[in-house]
């Protein structure tokens, strides 16, 4: 009984960690540019595939693969911003247009991955082999590592946004573009930096997930949907709220799977999302005036 409980909690923490990494990237782009990036999940898939190619197909090892995966995702993110988002800044239908263009990017990346890497299932090796025992429950060391890495990455991101000059300038651009430009911040450069950083986070998630799940062209689809639930649940716009909501959703999902089974879980999560939106339209941790 306690073993099941601990295993479920660990599973919840794992899901929460992955969702938090995904959601923080989505949130970063949303707060800086006011764009909801539907290609975020596909960027994650792309990162995982590139990591696999470098690490497995070329045999250069996991570290080189991870670096390549994160870097390739970041580069793809910068390109998406440059080609599919930037031409529409200042357009009065920018939000709708970028929904379409980022959806297009998602389809291009997904089908491109299908063409390049084919449909055969691929998997990355775990970062660390073996198992660890947490309070009697056996967990793979790789999963335990993810649970440690995710909060560290989030802390690093928070430190970057709140104390560094560049991080602060991204927040300034998100809050008032004209004012940011008038104190000397290069706004277009801040946009491409936000997109690149967000995509790098997606790539990292892909590398971490790529050894737990099979890498397929649609690897990122389900995490993207969950990350969307998370950012809406937490209230779009703040890193802390997104991270908090990610762990709430992850934990909920783990326990729903335990109690109700895999089939009902997504429905219940969406039902909860609707309830949150009805009673707290700005999200669970959102400010009323946000």
């Amino acid at each position: 009984m306690t073993e099941t409980l601990i295993a479920t909690i660990v599973s919840g923490l794992l899901l929460g960690s992955l969702y938090a990494l995904m959601a923080s990237g989505l949130s970063l782009v949303w707060t800086t540019l006011g764009v909801f990036n539907f290609a975020h999940g596909a960027l994650m898939t792309f990162g995982a595939f590139v990591a696999w190619t470098v690490a497995e197909a070329w045999g250069l090892g996991l570290l080189a693969g991870a670096v390549a995966g994160v870097g390739a995702a970041a580069l793809a993110g910068v390109l998406i911003e440059l080609l599919l988002v930037r031409p529409f800044y200042g357009h009065r239908n920018m939000l709708l247009i970028t929904v379409m263009t980022t959806l297009a990017a998602m389809i291009i990346l997904q089908n491109g991955a299908q063409v390049i890497w084919g449909a055969r299932l691929k998997q990355l090796p775990p970062i660390v082999e073996g198992n660890v025992s947490i309070f009697g429950a056996v967990v793979s060391a790789h999963e335990a590592l993810i649970i440690v890495i995710a909060p560290l990455v989030l802390l690093l991101l928070w430190w970057f946004a709140s104390t560094t000059r560049t991080g602060r300038s991204l927040r300034a651009v998100g809050q008032n573009q004209d004012s940011a430009a008038l104190i000397g911040i290069d706004v277009p450069r801040a946009f491409s930096l936000a997109f690149g950083l967000s995509a790098a986070l997606a790539g990292l998630t892909g590398v971490l997930l790529g050894s737990i799940r099979f890498i397929t062209p649609s690897l990122g689809a389900e995490p993207l949907v969950k990350a969307m639930i998370v950012v809406i649940f937490g209230g779009l716009g703040s890193l802390g709220a997104s991270a908090g909501a990610a762990f709430v959703i992850g934990m909920l999902e783990a326990f729903l799977v335990l109690w109700l089974g895999l089939y009902w879980t997504p429905s219940i999560l969406f039902l909860l999302l609707i309830l949150v939106l009805v009673f707290r339209p700005n999200g669970l941790f959102g400010r009323a005036n946000a």
Binding site: R171, A172, Q175, N176, D178, S179, A180, L182
Partner: peptide, 11 residues
Amino acid sequence: AQQGNMLFGDM
């Protein structure tokens, strides 16, 4: 310095 400028609300 802009007119009626609220700068960065959350800073």
